[in-house]
Nucleic acid binder design. Structure first.
Lengths: 364, 364
DNA sequence: GTGCGAAATCTATGCGCTTTAATCGCTGAG
DNA sequence: CTCAGCGATTAAAGCGCATAGATTTCGCAC
């Protein structure tokens, strides 16, 4: 590559000063049409491309929104950048790998950035999300969106002192960060209610990890509905996502061995639900015939699955858009407090709960 | 937001020079452990975040790969940033809108960037992809990936004089740009052969637009297979993607009116195929009973559709990865000529051609 | 205690652009 | 014919960091 031409080269060729070149691009109306054209002509002839780095340095703005995204997916599964793990086409069932939760949210962020004239910077930690990784992206954006549990809180707080930070899909909290969330509790309560009231189930177990605020809220929704119906709670531990399949298989085996198969498995995520459905199928147990299984998220994979997965659909794209929107607003006019929004969810009744698939429910 | 602390602030607090601060982050091993810790402590206390802009300016590298992505989707459909068009959750069948072709390719680019330690900059034109839009992203990356027909050739050529540019999924050509493509011709020939040999169809029409190199190659594949079988060619024009539904409906109406319904519609993309299947269903024509329909791409939407869509699956994620890989290689060691790669495709026999759905073919 | 090479640190400069303040050139009023 | 007034243009000062080259400090042998 030839040396990139700079404002100096353009200025020299056009016979003006670099300031005029700069104005030509940033404040065209302040430049006489004749000189403007001369500058543009020179720029074109030279193949001039303004350096965003220099621009950002001088102006203090980057015009970019950052998203710490893929790391979310990878870290949860223990994937390494140098691994040979298939990330798409190679996998036989890659609609189980893509698009997942964060892919849809990312799309939302991307759409909103597009609409507001920002570019999206997608950064990812190479190992545990340390500060060094984040610096690479936090240092070059005007605002940062992150998924919960991907970045240590103290690092996040530090960053938020410099640029607005929004947590995507985290319950309202007291961290002082901006945040967008969904009605986890209400959605799960409604879903549980469906199993109790429509299907008359009583022995309903909740499957989900501890320690994740959003999952805890889903549990609350489940618990509330069960208690309200006078039914006993029952919980099943879950493994890290990377080991869902093995864990689900052994759990199912235990159920069978103990002869204590619940009537329904209310999972905290679609991914868990699908893993359990696989395990149940492998064990020769019919879903929804012998046991109902439900998820939470509304991924494509649940729609493609047979039986299709009854679940609670989160407005994932909207979630991303709302997050990006908050950031961009904050960049334009920094507010004092944390901005938070909660979005509604939608119950998607499909086959895995025992209902017949409805055309209207085929959609996600 | 408080003024962001700089190397100077950190240096002052740690009692060292800014060079040492810089080294501490870039060449830690060249700094004595004691001073390194002092610097890190100061940085932590101050909430220091290195400015990527300044870094990029000084070093001449940005560590970012750019992708001109969403614009591709939007422009083809005539969507505007300020429009109220639903971009996801709102749509009843958004698996028809996401993930599409470019979404999967983008994922590939993103994965490869992650593995190679780059960040991804997703930029989008706000209107026609003019130079101004591109400058915003081309100026801040070390390499740029674009979809065909999204950026005027001359602009692309200009940019490619400064940074490596790769065209995603464009047949090998003479533009001198790097490129990745798939075996469009071979895949379509194989698919057409399937319809002829397995299903014994003779009146097979090709549906696809003119003027797009990759689509032309698909046509060649279709034509080659037909000629080889001694069958006549038949083509159907298509409308811009944004008007696919209306156009497909009127075309189907013409077929019916003229009583000349082909035995099969070989479409150049899955999106076209789905539009025609919708139109055929609306006209009360059974697929694949009365007419077979096939696509090309291997989108999720085709898998979810009933009947599921027989198609040719492109390795989209791999396509994106290959593109990013070429760019990153070129950044590291600029080569002289254009690098090109062609990837294989895979025939996915599903229901819309008249075959029974096979478990193995359910996958995409 | 000295001397020396290596390691650590610092000084100084420039990356390409934005932006403020100052200068220039022109117009029209006096 | 002069000069205030105004728009167009420019000079100059950074923005925050990397890095070559200069300088200081360190570790160690004598």
């Amino acid at each position: 590559m030839a040396k990139r031409p700079t404002v100096y080269d353009v200025a020299a060729r056009a016979g003006v000063s670099i300031a005029t070149v700069s104005f030509t691009f940033s404040q065209p109306h302040k430049v006489r049409p004749a000189t403007r054209e001369a500058v543009e002509e020179a720029a074109r002839a030279l193949g001039y491309l303004p350096s965003a780095s220099a621009r950002g340095l001088a102006s203090g703005k980057t015009g970019a929104i950052g998203l710490f995204s893929f790391a979310y997916y990878a870290r949860e599964r223990g994937l390494q950048p140098d691994s040979q793990t298939p990330f798409g086409d190679e996998a036989n069932e890659d609609f189980r790998m893509f698009p997942l939760y964060h892919d849809e949210v990312q799309r939302g962020v991307q759409v909103e950035c597009w609409r507001r004239g920002y570019v999206l910077m997608v950064g990812d930690a190479k190992g545990a999300a340390g500060e060094a990784d984040l610096a690479g992206i936090a240092g070059r954006v005007d605002g940062l969106a992150v998924f919960p549990n991907t970045v240590p809180d103290d690092v996040l707080m530090r960053i938020s002192r410099r640029i607005p930070v929004v947590e995507l899909s985290i319950p309202i909290n007291n961290t002082g960060l901006h945040g967008v969330s969904v009605d986890n509790e209400g959605g799960m309560a409604e879903l549980t209610g469906h199993l109790v009231e429509v299907h008359g189930l009583r022995d309903i177990a909740f499957v989900g990890p501890k320690g994740f605020p959003d999952k805890e809220h889903r549990f609350s929704g489940y618990a509330g509905a069960m208690v309200a119906a006078g039914l006993p709670l029952r919980t099943v531990d879950t493994a890290p996502i990377g080991h869902l399949a093995d864990f689900a298989a052994s759990t199912v085996a235990e159920f069978v061995a103990a002869g204590k198969l619940p009537q329904a498995l209310v999972c905290s995520t679609d991914e868990e639900a699908l893993a359990y459905m696989d395990a149940l199928a492998a064990a020769g147990i019919d879903v929804p015939g012998q046991i109902a299984v439900t998820g939470f998220d509304g991924l494509v994979a649940g729609l493609v699955n047979r039986p299709s997965l009854t679940t609670v659909r989160q407005p994932l794209v909207e979630l991303g858009r709302a997050g990006a929107s908050i950031l961009i607003d904050q960049v334009a006019k920094p507010g004092k407090g944390a901005v938070t929004r909660q979005l509604p969810v939608k119950l998607m009744i499909r086959e895995s709960c025992g209902c017949q698939a409805q055309p209207g429910n085929q959609v996600r």
